[in-house]
Amino acid sequence: MEAPANALVVHPGEAAEASLTDGAFELLADGGAVSASRLTLAVGADGAPPHHHKLSHEVFYVLGGTMVFRLGDSLTTVKKGGLVIIPPGLAHAFGAAEAEVADVVVVLSPGIERFGYFEQLAAISRGEAEFDSLVPEQDRYDVHFEDIPDWRSAP
């Protein structure tokens, strides 16, 4: 049986992928009502530099391992089965805990076409591009970088 024409169904193995030096992205849905990805991070790896979104809520559901989040001025750890919802405007960063691999589904709503952002992040992690190449794209991808040099340190 097929899904209705207006439904999005992504079967295993159909997602676009972007490999990182410390993990991998599966890019599941891009734009529309939501943007969705699955992120697997190596032990202690950072997921994204500190940033905020002006337009989107960001939702994290931890499938495995433990994630560390900086939410504004607070640090928190979230284990398998935990959920984090970040409202627009809240500065945040995230990564795998120091002793664990982490597996997380990330959803942004409303969705913004961001596959290009994730592909650029992957290129940066592999040393193929400079981080500064993303700075002019902050509005396009609704990812606005924050100056928090050591985000894992307690504020």
Rank of each mutant, 00 (worst) to 15 (best):
M1D: 14
P4S: 11
P4D: 15
N6P: 04
L8P: 03
L8T: 13
V9A: 05
V9Y: 09
V10T: 13
H11W: 09
E14A: 00
A15T: 09
A18W: 10
S19E: 15
T21C: 05
A24N: 14
A24D: 13
F25T: 00
L27T: 02
D30N: 07
G31Q: 00
G32K: 01
G32Y: 02
G32P: 07
A33E: 15
A33R: 15
S35Q: 08
S35W: 11
S37T: 14
R38I: 05
R38A: 11
D46T: 10
D46M: 05
A48R: 10
P49R: 11
P49W: 09
P50V: 01
H51P: 10
H52F: 00
K54C: 08
K54W: 08
L55P: 05
S56W: 03
S56L: 11
H57Q: 14
H57W: 15
F60R: 10
G64H: 02
F69Y: 03
F69W: 03
G72W: 01
G72E: 07
L75R: 12
T77E: 15
V78C: 10
K80E: 15
G81D: 06
G82M: 11
L83F: 15
I86R: 10
I86P: 05
P87V: 03
G89R: 07
G89F: 04
L90D: 06
A91I: 13
A91H: 08
A91T: 14
H92N: 13
H92Y: 03
H92L: 11
A93G: 07
A93T: 02
A93F: 01
A93P: 06
F94Y: 15
G95Y: 01
A97K: 10
E98S: 13
E98W: 05
E100M: 08
A102L: 00
A102M: 04
D103H: 04
D103M: 00
V106A: 11
V106T: 08
P110C: 03
P110R: 01
I112S: 12
E113L: 06
E113I: 10
E113K: 12
R114Y: 11
F115K: 05
F118G: 04
F118R: 02
E119K: 09
E119G: 00
Q120L: 14
Q120K: 14
A122C: 08
A122V: 04
A122S: 11
A122G: 11
A123D: 14
A123Y: 09
A123K: 14
S125H: 08
G127A: 00
A129Y: 07
A129G: 07
E130F: 03
F131G: 10
S133Y: 06
L134H: 12
V135Q: 13
P136N: 10
E137K: 14
E137Y: 07
E137M: 13
Q138L: 06
R140F: 05
R140I: 00
D142P: 04
D142E: 03
V143E: 12
E146A: 06
E146F: 02
D147Q: 04
P149T: 01
P149W: 03
D150N: 12
W151R: 01
W151G: 02
R152A: 02
S153T: 14
S153H: 11
A154Q: 13
A154L: 14
P155I: 07
